[in-house]
Design a binder for these strands. Structure first.
Lengths: 201, 201, 201, 201
DNA sequence: CATGAATGAGGGTTCATTCAT
DNA sequence: GATGAATGAACCCTCATTCAT
């Protein structure tokens, strides 16, 4: 699917892993603007080695994000059979926020889960969207989540939470209280009809 | 308080304003990575002129942010006497998000409204916090907003919304629906007691 | 024409000249692959200074070539009124070869005097072509140069001679003898009809 | 003489040939700056294989040039017994130009046929020189080529023509006309006494 | 022997900042 | 004060060459 060609030599595989690991670390520390050199140094490899595995700075970023998203999607898969669909949905939301907060870099990609430019992340983004949607639908069917919660605003709030968590280094306690609060908005029940709030385009 | 030292000459003042204006425009267009040269060009002044008024790229950013925050704080002040305290509170929230979305650059500063590092923004950040707090308290007293909504999570969600709005270019419609949804979390009423959600630090 | 905008500051002008001078020297030594860094060092300026004056490596090359060509074209202009048209024509040929040999870099541009890609050198190349053509025509009219000598093959031989001279560092003596020999081909007089010589395309 | 040491294994020999062939192709396409990787790819061998046979990029170039020169020298050998010595001489000149034009890379080596640095090409260059000289002498004896044509300027013009042909991609027609013109300079007959032409060293 | 992964110097270029004009 | 020329560190990336597999 993703284009695995040859099985790669053992040392190459190990180096690729080291690069990914180092990149995660450095990107988590310095943000998207982290330099390739810093990553190479942290990984203990030459600059060229990074470029062998990831032809471009962008490609490295995407690889990391795709990697992390895949893992999240897998966890989402497992949660699809959880006993409590509502809890499962909220749990997944939390997992995503956690991942963003710990590893950074994730939020930007997430922010465009609904957009899909042509950047090689389209597939994994689509899968992520599906994972969320399927958990949401199940939770709604079970009556745990309000019926009128739709994907666009859900994604908007998810990505918002991720960016904030990843930028502001929310303490576990703050994150907990913030998410609890936010989740209240997802519950079914009587709603006030609030006046329209935005004005300027 | 804000540290005005000498009564700048008329033309110097005008130049300062032109730079700020241009910087807003360019930063809104190119984001934080906008180059000083681009700003100087847009302002129609020399590079040196920018540096005369703002000793550092960072200082310019802060000036812009402080500027914008001041204006928001002023609007908050006016809303303190609005007829409907609940609406006023939500309206202010919306105003801040709008500002972030239109002008960029704002969200990052906001994200640290609760932190206060030692950058020249502590004052205005404190004022912003006060503005929000005062609107919140009034809205809570009026019964429009739940009693247990506290500043930390409110700021967290506000900054989250701002960053997301500013990054993802939410359409007016999406922004509207997202904020409505979020605001439901602020309403008083029966709450489900959700299980704690985060785990890893 | 060439786009002179503002009169440039004195020091800027001086630096520009230093860069050009250094570039000529270094390019003559290292060929087209000379590094910008080497040129900056030789010029005693920062790298950025080069890029201020010449936005691109290519632009610097072209500036040098254009410069040199212009000077040659000017010399050609003077030769148009020389007493002996035949000698003038040959003298110009020699001047061009001399310039190529001493300064390198010239030949490549010359090689495409007949081609004209879109590289900012089109103008000067056209002028060079005109200069040559006008000297040639005059020499032919005077009977000093054979009538059937046409521009394409003349340019071919001129550029050939230039490249060779610039690459092989012909000694003055060798250059003299080579040109004398070649010039014999330009003289009028009885010609043997040689059989076609090329075969493969 | 040429330095064959050990009787390479069959597959090694085949690989060497494949590399040479690929290198010719790629160098003809991309010029001297063609990358080793491109050549390896075209040859269908690993990078290491190239380096096993040619310790250096330079060595590979030389091997190719030597190869091509050898072939040319062989053709020269055959032409030594041709019926028309004058035509044979000119034909050889043309063959060399053709080869340069089609395969690139040749001209530089040729340019130094008279110089002989210590680069492993000395032998073949000497042979080439001999081949030319012998054809020239024979043609002169037959009266077809002027007596006073000497090797240095002949080589100079030959290499000039080669570089130009290889760089400018002369059309067959242009090449034909250019060579015919040039060859007129080689013919015996009355010569004008041209004034000395070069001045600056 | 063949392979191709690893290396890292070096290339062109950008840009925040300083300072002579 | 205002200007913009100069600076040079830093960035991303390429590629000849080496060497573990």
């Amino acid at each position: 699917m993703t284009g695995d060609a040859k099985p790669l030599r053992a040392d190459a595989l190990r180096n690729r892993a080291r690069v990914l690991e180092a990149a995660e670390l450095i990107l988590a520390r310095d943000g998207l603007s982290a330099s390739m050199r810093a990553i190479a140094q942290e990984a203990g490899v030459g600059l060229g080695t990074i470029y062998r595995h990831f032809p471009t700075r962008e490609a490295l970023h995407q690889a990391i994000i795709a990697d992390r998203m895949r893992r999240l999607i897998d966890e989402g898969e497992e949660l699809r059979t959880a006993a409590d669909p509502g809890a499962a949905f909220l749990r997944f939301f939390t997992l995503v926020v956690d991942s963003a907060k710990r590893k950074k870099i994730l939020a930007d990609a997430l922010a465009q889960a609904g957009v899909d430019p042509k950047d090689g992340l389209s597939d994994v983004r689509r899968d992520m969207r599906h994972a969320i949607e399927s958990l949401l639908t199940r939770a709604q069917r079970s009556g745990a989540i309000r019926e009128d919660l739709r994907m666009p605003e859900l994604l908007a709030l998810l990505s918002a939470t991720c960016v904030a968590a990843e930028r502001s280094d929310w303490s576990p306690d703050l994150q907990d209280r913030t998410l609890r609060l936010l989740f209240d908005a997802f519950l079914p029940g009587p709603r006030r009809h609030l006046p329209p709030c935005t004005d300027t385009p």
